[in-house]
Structures are given as structure tokens and as C-alpha cells.
């Protein structure tokens, strides 16, 4: 088990290095950072001075090492556009995205899993048909369109919910939260539903398929043949066995929520990382793009690692230590 986790961690480090290399390549070769930071009329000497002070005259491996060293300390340089340290921009935007992703994940889990179980167990009920049809539409619905339709209905026509921004926020240390004010909470509703809808339907469909699959297995048939209660068969025996794939996909979904936040934040003008990134793409603001890339990669890698570790708590077969010790005896 320890070996497996160490192996996974090494793999994560490898992924981070690859991402860092891409970011670095972006940084060094896409556009000229000096040109971006200086004006047309600045003297050549100033540019050369700047080049030297940024270490851009050094050999590539040294530049890369320095880039990684700085990145580890949270230093991604200065935004070409905002002329502020990138890390400062990101810290300002980070809480907005995290709160949005958090609420969207809760929706996805607490609606998706029960709906999946229900549709698997009551396959022929009208509610199941409705949920199944709804999920098909949900899965074919682009995130931005969901957001637009929700805005059209709830903001334009009914005028009950705000269509952009976070509302009032309260600062707790450097973290600004929208959870503590009414306008902050109201502002969260439409964006989090928009962001969570796709994952909700995906998780629901996955749980349903996995449940149906597990219900066909011999050990469920055998559990029935032993006269166990339906409740125990459905949850203790069947649902628990769907958890490995469900946890995998849920982990991946939380990762993609961070990515899809870009779209939701654009639709709702939500002042988060995604909006920052899309503006950076529009302005060719390479340091911000690079930092965003490294940061989201880090989050994905951490989520994946967490999922890998969760497997051990779910599936005893992966805790292989005892199998070797007690051996196979007949």
C-alpha cells in the first residue's frame, strides 16, 4: 500500500514537472516577456538590464530551475496586464472559485448519487423515466447555455435572483466569503447550479449503471438467496461495491468543475480564477496563464492522489498485505 502511494506520488511529481515545463516554455518562448513589460520607446539598455535582472540571459536549464524554485515559493512574476504580482491576483480570486466549486460539488454529490440509486432500484417508476430523460438533456447541455437559460428565467423574466457577481462578501483574513450575507448566498444559487448540473447528471448516470451492474453479480444474488433485507442488499452490499468507480469519476468531476468554472464565471461575471484566466488568454498575459495552469494542475494532482488513497478505505482487496501473510490455503 505504501509502495503504491509512493509510486503515485512520484507520478504526481512527474505530472507537475511536465506542467511546469509547459508553463515555462509558454513563459519563455511565447511572445517576449521584455517586450511585454516595456514600452516601445524604452531604451535598449533598459531592456537588457531587465533581461539580466530577470535572469533571461542565463542558460535554459538554469532558467527552468529558477522558474520551478520561484513557482514552489508562489512567485510567478508580474502580470503583463495588471502590473501586479500574479500570486496576488490569484489569491484575490481564489476564494470566489473555491466557494463556487464547493457548492457545485455538494449539489452534484447530494443530488446525483441519490438520484442514481433511485433510478437503478425503481427502474420502471415514472420518476425514474423523468430523471433519466432529464439527465440526457443535462448531459447534452453546454454549461454556458444552462447559465444563460437560468439567467433568462430567474433574472430577466422573474427578476428573483442576481445574474452577475458575488454579491456582498465578508473578509475573513485574506479569504473573502459570500456564505455570510444574503446577497452573497443568493448570488451563489444560479452559478453553482449551472456549474453543478453537468456533473450531477454524469454522477447520476454513472451510479445508476454501476448499481445495475452490481445488482447482476453473483454475490448480490447470493445475498438475496440468504433472505437479507432489501435495505441491506441495496446499500450495504450493492452501493458500497459501486464506490470505487463512483469515487474515481467524482474526483475527476471535481477537477473538471475547476476547469468548467471558467465558463460559468464568464457567464455570470463571477470574479474567480476562471475569469482571470480567460481574460489572460484574451490579453496574452502569459504569467497569469502559466500560474493558472500550474495551480489547477496542482489541484488535479492532489484530487487524484486523494482518490487513490480513498480506494484503500473502500476496497480491502487493495490492502494486499494480509493476503500475502495468510496465503492461500486449501
Amino acid at each position: 500500500m505504501l509502495y503504491f502511494i509512493i509510486q503515485r506520488m512520484l507520478q504526481s511529481v512527474l505530472v507537475m514537472l511536465v506542467v511546469a515545463a509547459i508553463s515555462f516554455a509558454l513563459f519563455s518562448y511565447v511572445g517576449d516577456p521584455i517586450e511585454a513589460m516595456t514600452g516601445e520607446d524604452d531604451p535598449i539598455e533598459l531592456k537588457q538590464q531587465l533581461r539580466a535582472s530577470l535572469g533571461l540571459d542565463q542558460p535554459i536549464p538554469i532558467q527552468f530551475a529558477r522558474f520551478v524554485g520561484n513557482a514552489v515559493q508562489g512567485d510567478f512574476g508580474v502580470s503583463y496586464r495588471a502590473r501586479q504580482p500574479v500570486m496576488q491576483l490569484i489569491a484575490e480570486r481564489f476564494p470566489a472559485t473555491m466557494e463556487l466549486v464547493f457548492v457545485a460539488s455538494l449539489i452534484a454529490l447530494f443530488v446525483g448519487i441519490p438520484a442514481g440509486i433511485y433510478t437503478a432500484l425503481r427502474r420502471d417508476s415514472p420518476v425514474s423515466y423523468a430523471l433519466q430523460t432529464g439527465s440526457l438533456i443535462g448531459i447534452s447541455m453546454p454549461t454556458f447555455l444552462t447559465g444563460i437559460l437560468l439567467i433568462l428565467v430567474f433574472s430577466v423574466w422573474l427578476k428573483v435572483l442576481p445574474s452577475f457577481g458575488r454579491g456582498e462578501t465578508v473578509d475573513i483574513g485574506w479569504w473573502s466569503t459570500g456564505f455570510l450575507t444574503v446577497s452573497g448566498l443568493k448570488s451563489l444559487i444560479l452559478p453553482s447550479i449551472t456549474l453543478g448540473l453537468f456533473s450531477t447528471t454524469l454522477i447520476m448516470r454513472l451510479v445508476r449503471t454501476e448499481m445495475l451492474e452490481v445488482m447482476r453479480t453473483d454475490y448480490i444474488k447470493f445475498a438475496r438467496a440468504r433472505g437479507l433485507r432489501d435495505r441491506s442488499i441495496n446499500f450495504r452490499h450493492a452501493f458500497k461495491n459501486t464506490l470505487v468507480p463512483v469515487v474515481t469519476i467524482t474526483g475527476m468531476q471535481v477537477g473538471s468543475l475547476i476547469a468548467f468554472a471558467i465558463i460559468t464565471e464568464t457567464v455570470f461575471q463571477w470574479p474567480g480564477l476562471g475569469l482571470l484566466f480567460i481574460q489572460a488568454v484574451g490579453n496574452v498575459d502569459i504569467p497569469v496563464m502559466a500560474a493558472y495552469l500550474v495551480l489547477t494542475a496542482l489541484m488535479f494532482v492532489v484530487i487524484n492522489l486523494a482518490v487513490d488513497i480513498l480506494y484503500f478505505f473502500i476496497d480491502p482487496r487493495l490492502r494486499a498485505d494480509r493476503a500475502v501473510a495468510s496465503g492461500a490455503t486449501t
Binding site: 453479480t217 453473483d218 454475490y219 444474488k221 447470493f222 445475498a223 438475496r224 438467496a225 440468504r226 433472505g227 437479507l228 433485507r229 432489501d230 450495504r236 452490499h237 458500497k240 461495491n241 473502500i314 476496497d315 480491502p316 482487496r317
Partner: peptide, 25 residues
């Protein structure tokens, strides 16, 4: 019928490798 199963009629299935729930002792 659920109370008859297991209580009055026991069942043994073909494949012992798949008849037991892998996640429970």
C-alpha cells in the same frame, strides 16, 4: 418469501469466487 429464503431454504451457488461480497469480511 424473503423470510423463507435463508431461513428455510439455503442456497449454494456455482462460483465461490464471485458468490461472496468482496468488501465485507
Amino acid at each position: 418469501m424473503r423470510k423463507v429464503r435463508g431461513r428455510e431454504i439455503g442456497a449454494i451457488f456455482q462460483d465461490p469466487l464471485t458468490s461472496l461480497n468482496p468488501l465485507l469480511t
